[in-house]
Amino acid sequence: MEILVVENIVKGFGGVTAVQDLSFAVSKGEIYSIIGPNGAGKSTVFNCINGLYRPDSGTISFGGRDITGLNPDKIATAGISRTFQNLELFSRMTTLQNLLLGRHVSTTYSIWQMLTFNFRNSKAAKQEILQREKAEDVIEFLELEPYRDRPVFSLPYGVQKLVELGRALAMEPDILLLDEPAAGLNHEERQDMIFWIQDIRNELGITIVVIEHNMQLVKDISDRVLAINFGQKLVEGSVEDVLRDQSVIRAYLGEPAL
């Protein structure tokens, strides 16, 4: 079953077309990778999907519902969460607070109920405790216990990446968009990341779309791969097929010298 369908989206920035008439569909429960050289428009695709950019034309539907042009917070509420290429964390807040923000949408109490926040049996306090438990589950899942109460700007880069992943997971999304999850990680951390991504799909059943440059990671985790260049689809298929495809090789290495 197709959970995310992108149809003919176009996005340009003042004369430069970043994405040109791109279509693809992601099935429920798969790990779908998007590859392509720098500037191919990969991140722009993500930004269009989760509403940071509004595509010039084309439609994006999620779970059968048209989400094109909705605000990012609406799309997040609908069940799409993401991480960023260069980390967008709440850097002065602690790991726990970052994860609790991932629970923001699910934390249901009104501004009036907040007033009774200090009483153990109030709705607000019960909600806070419930969401805290959920956040602690994520901490446990990603083994973030040592960093729970530290402000995230003070954490090593690799851990910050995990916190961002944790925040996205805490949202209990149906689909997770990972923008270069292995960028900036060393070999060991990269292996861990592969392990987490597989775990998230296998244990939590979350559909994952990954943008990645590291071919090892792409090979290890992907069910299907989409290669794009200049915002257009080059080829889509299994890992082996895509990586062997001449157009993909040319996109990465350039035209063979004659």
Binding site: N50, P72, L89, M93, L101, H104, V105, F117, Q131
Partner: peptide
């Protein structure tokens, strides 16, 4: 009141906007 606002989900959302409005919006904060 100020203490409750800051320590509730509302205050967390405020701080999220301070630290990164982009990340705040993709975590579902309007």
């Amino acid at each position: 009141l100020a203490h409750n606002i800051i320590h509730s989900k509302i205050g967390r959302a405020f701080q999220a906007i301070r630290d990164s409005d982009i990340a705040a919006s993709v975590t579902g904060i309007n």
